[in-house]
Design a protein around this nucleic acid. Sequence first.
DNA 1: CGTTGAACCTGTTTGC
DNA 2: TGCAAACAGGTTCAAC
Length: 313
Amino acid sequence: MIAWTDANNMPELPEVETVARGLQRAVVGRKILSVTLGKTDFIDDPETVEKQLPGRKILAVERYGKFLLLRLSGNEGAGQGNEGVALLVHLGMTGMLLPQAVKEPQRKHTHVVLQLDDGQELRYVDPRRFGRIAYLAGEVLSGELRRFGADPLEVGLEEFARRIRARRARVKALLLDQHVLRGVGNIYADESLWKAKIHPAQLGTRLKTHQVEQLYGALQDILQKAIALRGSSISDFLDAEGLPGEYQRHHRVYGREGKGCSRCKTPIRRVIVAGRSSYYCPNCQKAPRGWKKKGRAKTEASRRTGASKTRKS
DNA sequence: CGTTGAACCTGTTTGC
DNA sequence: TGCAAACAGGTTCAAC
């Protein structure tokens, strides 16, 4: 029914972690011989990428929030605030980084190809080009990384509590804000809130201590389980490596509008919070006082080309 | 300051 | 049956 849940790409923290692990095996230690670019509107500075990558070795592949970080050779002075040299890759919604043999036919929407020294190529494929690629080094790289919040799997309870209560915004918005926590996306935010029995529209500042603790535990637990199951199904690259993700089978609310809550059988609802589809159990997750799921009707403001939609399933 | 909505882009799904 | 419009995802930016 909810057909789009079987889309095979929803790269959030667990999916990106899975890709990073696969790439560690496939490309670490390889030298980049040359670069071929297709469409470049999602690349920060295409010329720099083209000029700087050839000759460098891929030293490591790390996950940083939803980014993949390909650490590159060329600045041995790394450390102490100097992050060295790296290629930053954000998969956006439909991005894939695929190690493939040169002779393998290129998929449609292949926009970046790195020729490696072992007969393989690392190909970036992204139909919608919602991703981002940037070559960054030294201070610029450090600065860019500093912009993001804590890693949800590494952050301690105290810091988590401080961050999630710091602003007077809805908890869903806070979870999705990469400057608060890095790596959480729509699926895992909803799943965690359900597990912690917190309504997505609840204000972060209003959360009780026990709720913050529940959320902290739920988020880590869910992310770890999802990683163990290789995320919620993702790219072909994984097929080559092993199995597609399995976590989507464990979704309790995401994409399950109208189906019974697995705790209390109440039909799961979908509302828009923080501008995003949010799935929750209206019984387990009590709405904050004064929050009305106002119909998104009356969009009279949009005159444009009769763009106002008024969806309201 | 926080929230909302549009824009970016394309493949897939829905609706008439 | 066929085509047009809606819709999804993450992020940024402009406008309330």
